[in-house]
Protein backbone atom coordinates (compact mmCIF):
# COMPACT_ATOMS: atom_id res chain seq x y z
CA UNK A 1 0.00 0.00 0.00
CA UNK A 2 3.03 2.32 -0.33
CA UNK A 3 1.25 3.67 -3.41
CA UNK A 4 -1.23 5.52 -1.22
CA UNK A 5 1.14 6.83 1.42
CA UNK A 6 2.29 10.38 1.94
CA UNK A 7 2.91 12.52 -1.07
CA UNK A 8 1.76 9.97 -3.68
CA UNK A 9 -1.79 9.87 -2.35
CA UNK A 10 -1.85 13.65 -2.09
CA UNK A 11 -0.65 14.04 -5.71
CA UNK A 12 -3.02 11.31 -6.96
CA UNK A 13 -5.98 13.00 -5.29
CA UNK A 14 -5.16 16.31 -6.97
CA UNK A 15 -4.50 14.73 -10.38
CA UNK A 16 -7.81 12.87 -10.29
CA UNK A 17 -9.54 16.10 -9.26
CA UNK A 18 -8.01 17.87 -12.27
CA UNK A 19 -9.14 15.09 -14.61
CA UNK A 20 -12.68 15.27 -13.24
CA UNK A 21 -12.70 19.04 -13.47
CA UNK A 22 -11.68 18.79 -17.12
CA UNK A 23 -14.31 16.14 -17.86
CA UNK A 24 -17.04 18.10 -16.08
CA UNK A 25 -16.07 21.22 -18.04
CA UNK A 26 -16.15 19.15 -21.23
CA UNK A 27 -19.59 17.82 -20.34
CA UNK A 28 -20.87 21.28 -19.48
CA UNK A 29 -19.49 22.68 -22.74
CA UNK A 30 -21.18 19.89 -24.68
CA UNK A 31 -24.49 20.63 -22.99
CA UNK A 32 -24.19 24.33 -23.71
CA UNK A 33 -22.92 24.18 -27.29
CA UNK A 34 -24.83 21.20 -28.66
CA UNK A 35 -27.35 20.02 -26.07
CA UNK A 36 -28.46 16.43 -26.76
CA UNK A 37 -32.15 17.04 -26.18
CA UNK A 38 -33.40 13.64 -27.30
CA UNK A 39 -32.69 10.22 -25.73
CA UNK A 40 -31.19 8.91 -28.96
CA UNK A 41 -28.64 11.71 -29.01
CA UNK A 42 -27.73 11.08 -25.34
CA UNK A 43 -27.32 7.40 -26.15
CA UNK A 44 -25.20 8.06 -29.20
CA UNK A 45 -23.00 10.47 -27.25
CA UNK A 46 -22.46 8.05 -24.36
CA UNK A 47 -21.82 5.03 -26.52
CA UNK A 48 -19.43 6.61 -29.00
CA UNK A 49 -15.85 5.39 -28.50
CA UNK A 50 -14.77 8.74 -27.10
CA UNK A 51 -17.84 9.04 -24.90
CA UNK A 52 -17.43 5.54 -23.46
CA UNK A 53 -13.75 6.04 -22.71
CA UNK A 54 -14.40 9.38 -21.03
CA UNK A 55 -17.22 7.92 -18.93
CA UNK A 56 -15.00 5.05 -17.76
CA UNK A 57 -12.15 7.49 -17.01
CA UNK A 58 -14.56 9.73 -15.09
CA UNK A 59 -15.83 6.92 -12.88
CA UNK A 60 -12.36 5.45 -12.37
CA UNK A 61 -10.88 8.79 -11.28
CA UNK A 62 -13.96 9.49 -9.17
CA UNK A 63 -13.52 6.15 -7.37
CA UNK A 64 -9.83 6.73 -6.75
CA UNK A 65 -10.38 10.31 -5.62
CA UNK A 66 -13.22 9.24 -3.35
CA UNK A 67 -11.33 6.36 -1.81
CA UNK A 68 -8.34 8.55 -0.93
CA UNK A 69 -10.76 11.05 0.61
CA UNK A 70 -12.46 8.36 2.67
CA UNK A 71 -9.03 7.04 3.70
CA UNK A 72 -8.11 10.52 4.95
CA UNK A 73 -11.30 10.71 6.99
CA UNK A 74 -10.70 7.21 8.36
CA UNK A 75 -7.12 8.11 9.35
CA UNK A 76 -8.48 11.08 11.26
CA UNK A 77 -11.52 9.57 12.93
CA UNK A 78 -11.35 5.78 12.85
CA UNK A 79 -8.44 4.77 15.04
CA UNK A 80 -8.97 1.05 15.80
CA UNK A 81 -6.91 -0.70 13.05
CA UNK A 82 -9.41 -3.47 12.32
CA UNK A 83 -12.35 -1.07 12.11
CA UNK A 84 -10.36 1.22 9.84
CA UNK A 85 -9.38 -1.67 7.60
CA UNK A 86 -13.03 -2.77 7.45
CA UNK A 87 -14.23 0.73 6.51
CA UNK A 88 -11.57 1.14 3.82
CA UNK A 89 -12.22 -2.34 2.44
CA UNK A 90 -16.00 -1.92 2.26
CA UNK A 91 -15.75 1.51 0.64
CA UNK A 92 -13.02 0.26 -1.72
CA UNK A 93 -15.07 -2.75 -2.81
CA UNK A 94 -18.17 -0.59 -3.41
CA UNK A 95 -16.23 1.97 -5.46
CA UNK A 96 -14.40 -0.75 -7.40
CA UNK A 97 -17.70 -2.50 -8.10
CA UNK A 98 -19.17 0.73 -9.48
CA UNK A 99 -16.21 1.11 -11.87
CA UNK A 100 -16.44 -2.53 -12.95
CA UNK A 101 -20.16 -2.11 -13.54
CA UNK A 102 -19.53 0.91 -15.76
CA UNK A 103 -16.79 -0.92 -17.69
CA UNK A 104 -18.99 -4.01 -18.16
CA UNK A 105 -21.92 -1.88 -19.31
CA UNK A 106 -19.78 -0.18 -21.92
CA UNK A 107 -18.13 -3.44 -22.95
CA UNK A 108 -21.53 -5.11 -23.31
CA UNK A 109 -22.68 -2.31 -25.58
CA UNK A 110 -19.63 -2.60 -27.83
CA UNK A 111 -19.81 -6.41 -27.86
CA UNK A 112 -23.49 -6.22 -28.76
CA UNK A 113 -22.88 -3.64 -31.45
CA UNK A 114 -19.94 -5.51 -32.99
Amino acid sequence: MRLFLGQRAWVLQRLTALVQLFLLALGAATLLIAPPLAYERWYALATSTHGAVLIVVFFATLALHGWIGVRDIALDYVHPPFLRLAVLTVVGVILFAIVIRVVLTMAAHFAGGA
Partner: peptide, 11 residues
Protein backbone atom coordinates in the same frame (compact mmCIF):
# COMPACT_ATOMS: atom_id res chain seq x y z
CA UNK B 1 8.08 14.42 6.30
CA UNK B 2 6.84 12.32 3.35
CA UNK B 3 4.56 10.32 5.57
CA UNK B 4 0.82 9.88 5.72
CA UNK B 5 0.72 11.27 9.28
CA UNK B 6 3.65 13.61 9.87
CA UNK B 7 2.83 16.12 7.11
CA UNK B 8 -0.15 14.90 5.17
CA UNK B 9 -2.66 14.97 8.03
CA UNK B 10 -2.90 18.70 7.36
CA UNK B 11 -6.33 19.28 5.81
Amino acid sequence: LDDVYRLFRCR
